[in-house]
Nucleic acid binder design. Sequence first.
RNA 1: GGCCCGGUGGUCAAGCGGUUAAGACACGGCCCUUUCAAGGCUGUAACACGGGUUCGAGUCCCGUCCGGGUCACCA
Length: 468
Amino acid sequence: MSVNNNATHIKTRFAPSPTGYLHVGGARTALFNYLFAKKFGGTFLLRIEDTDPERSKPEYSEQILISMKWLGLDWDEGPYHQSERMHIYQQYTQKLLEEGKAYRCFCTTEELEQMREQQRQQGLPTRYDGRCSRLTQEEIEERLKKGMPFAVRLKVPQDRGIIAWDDMVKGHIEINSSELDDFILVRSDGTPTYNFAVVIDDHTMGVTHVLRGEDHIPNTPKQILIYEALDWETPEFGHVPMILGKDKTKLSKRHGAVGVEAYRDEGFLPEALFNFLALLGASYDPDREVYTKQELIELFDPKKIGLHPAVFDPDKLYYINREHMKMLPPEELVERIRPFAEAKGFQIEPYHLRLIPLLVERMHTLKDFVELADYIFTDDFTVDEKAQELLTKDLPLEGLAEQLDATAWDADHIEAVLRQYAQDKGIKPREYFPFIRAVISGKSVGPSLFHLMEAMPKDMVLRRLKKS
RNA sequence: GGCCCGGUGGUCAAGCGGUUAAGACACGGCCCUUUCAAGGCUGUAACACGGGUUCGAGUCCCGUCCGGGUCACCA
């Protein structure tokens, strides 16, 4: 891969099929392509592979674009839609047919199934036997005249031998062309199959580097054959390992959330998910795991991607998210929290900014701010179990609000007043402080009490102390 | 089953012929402390197995086992 990166303009692509939301696995390969293009000042293009009308839906396509934008995977070109490029595929089909590099296959589904069944019984691999390639010109004319539907198959050269490529992540990979049969390029309804469309698109769009999931390895030799038939230069290929769930099987819904938007809704920062996904199955600097997008662009190298599948570890994601929340300026973090507060019917107020430094340490997601500190939004806050217990103690409060009111509103002075008050009443601070916390916040846990009080509006605190 | 890709602690991973086999997450302990976190210190824990090659193998070769992927007129 140390190839002509400087000589040629790098162009990568992400080509999802709109059959669902953006899967984190897909997001990761999109991300790798993005990083690669950005690193070399190249172009990252987006192409929607919607040639399957059965499963493709416009709303899915829309959702994928939204998720990509949210994640920060902005594309420079596209989105192109394969469904709008049918005329281009036809052009090349014609060319291959004329040059004898592809041929019409009139076999019916039943006929093919029968053939496979026979092969299975004989313990042979199920491959197309190429019967239609042996049709004479007359036989072909005759079937055409009868209006028989046909698919178009690539004629795999008999003497092709070993098909090999130097994979950007896996290294040298090779496969014997005898493993391949004359696969279908164009369906009998005239639409191109995946492999055919991909090759034509990648070439005509000028894609130079293809980074995709390793489930595409078996497709690569087929595509190479198509490139050769069309007399085109092949791009560089790189196959990245899959993402697995906790049980080491391919990550799917069974393992929990797999859609990117689910993570957005759960309160993860896009920069955190970006970071996490970039690091899943890869390592750029052995001593770090928290990176900004810019750093990842600079450090990215397909060679740094591991060779084996990686398990998706939510714990690590939480950790990365936490780190990124800490990195954000409080003013910015508040803005990210705002939608989650509003979803609960709360409004962000200017003073909430002061709570950020106190709470960010115990937040795992943006959602947590509201969960952890509902008491700064409303007097109708929840009271946790231990706090309820504390409140039954019925410790003295009379006069406290007045004393606090008379002092400067900062942590040191508040602490001094509280300690003095407890001492006057003969109560141990260990017993009194948790009680006060329960009174003003309904919680048995939280930030340093005095700093919390300092950050809260004075009138809010005094009001609660008086009310109890 | 054929073909392809893999296999370092529970997880992510450094390593690229000679190391006490890093680091991070998670987990346990200690410190700090009004609580919970955070932070600091610290602990448990790994080269799938068997043969080679070599003075020497996690690192190279072969086999076994295990895991994953793929075998469509889906993408």
